[in-house]
Design a protein around this nucleic acid. Structure first.
Length: 252
DNA sequence: ATGGCTTCATAGTGAAGA
């Protein structure tokens, strides 16, 4: 089954892109972040009419996550149970026997910001919760916008970014902590082109110059098999794109 | 150069993203 993750930066603006990409990519499970849509306004009918099941947890203006799938989602979890949070950043469900966890990890703003402390606390809670979740659901995939570039090769200019938010040592340590739980970065299971990124700044022709970062990831537990994983730059080339593009993995 | 672009929000000297 093909699973994917895409920070759409407003589902309202990007609905057509999402529908088109779902159809052409033949994706079975698509995790969305930054839907920026209250649940009452979620475009449920449009997606159902296209033949998909959807679960979602959103709010006005900021954040918001959703899982779109060809098969029905069960055992839906909204938010981290061990972290009091008004921000809608996590939704999980069991689909085709695999625990799908969709996350929008906080950005952090800068290492000096209160939001950075919130990010690290959120990551610590995610780690603790996943430890238990993996016992309950050994077949698990963690997809989303992590807002972490795990290594320097995931950053277009690692010297300029050194120590900054998205690449700082505590953030990378948190990412490695997830890997120590047995979760594997599907993208790095395969030979990949150099300078592969999933996000490019809207400003200064970031995409055209490939000034990007790989901050969207799909991690899978050890008992999940993966036969391919890649980044689809296609949607980033469209008119009025999200600043992120979809990442995907073929798993069984 | 703390900008640059995009979104949602409100009408702010805006906020947030990454």
């Amino acid at each position: 089954m093909k699973i994917a993750s895409w920070n759409v930066n407003s589902l309202k603006i990007r609905l057509e892109h999402v529908q088109n990409w779902l159809a052409e990519s033949q994706t079975d499970v698509l995790c969305l972040q930054e839907t920026k849509t209250e649940d009452a306004n979620f475009p449920l009918q449009e997606l159902q009419q296209a033949g998909y099941h959807v679960v979602y947890s959103g709010q006005k203006t900021y954040n918001g996550v959703a899982i779109i799938s060809k098969c029905e989602a069960a055992e839906i979890q909204y938010g981290l149970p061990n972290f009091e949070d008004a921000q809608k950043r996590l939704i999980a469900a069991t689909i085709n026997g695999i625990r799908i966890v969709c996350v929008y990890i906080p950005n952090g703003e800068s290492t000096e910001s209160d939001k950075y402390q919130y990010k690290l606390a959120w990551l610590a809670a995610l780690h603790e919760w996943l430890k238990a979740e993996l016992v309950r659901y050994p077949k698990l995939a963690l997809l989303g916008d992590y807002n972490i570039a795990p290594e320097d090769r995931d950053v277009h200019d690692p010297v300029a970014w050194a120590g900054k938010v998205l690449v700082s040592e505590p953030e990378r340590a948190a990412f490695q902590g997830l890997q120590k739980l047995g979760l594997r970065d599907t993208f790095r299971l395969f030979e990949q082109p150099e300078k592969s990124y999933s996000w490019w700044d809207y400003r200064m022709m970031g995409f055209r110059r490939n000034h990007g970062m790989r901050i969207d990831h799909i991690l899978i537990s050890q008992v999940v098999n993966c036969t391919a994983s890649s980044i689809d730059k296609g949607p980033r080339k469209l008119e009025r794109p999200s600043d992120h593009t979809p990442v995907w993995a073929e798993i069984s």
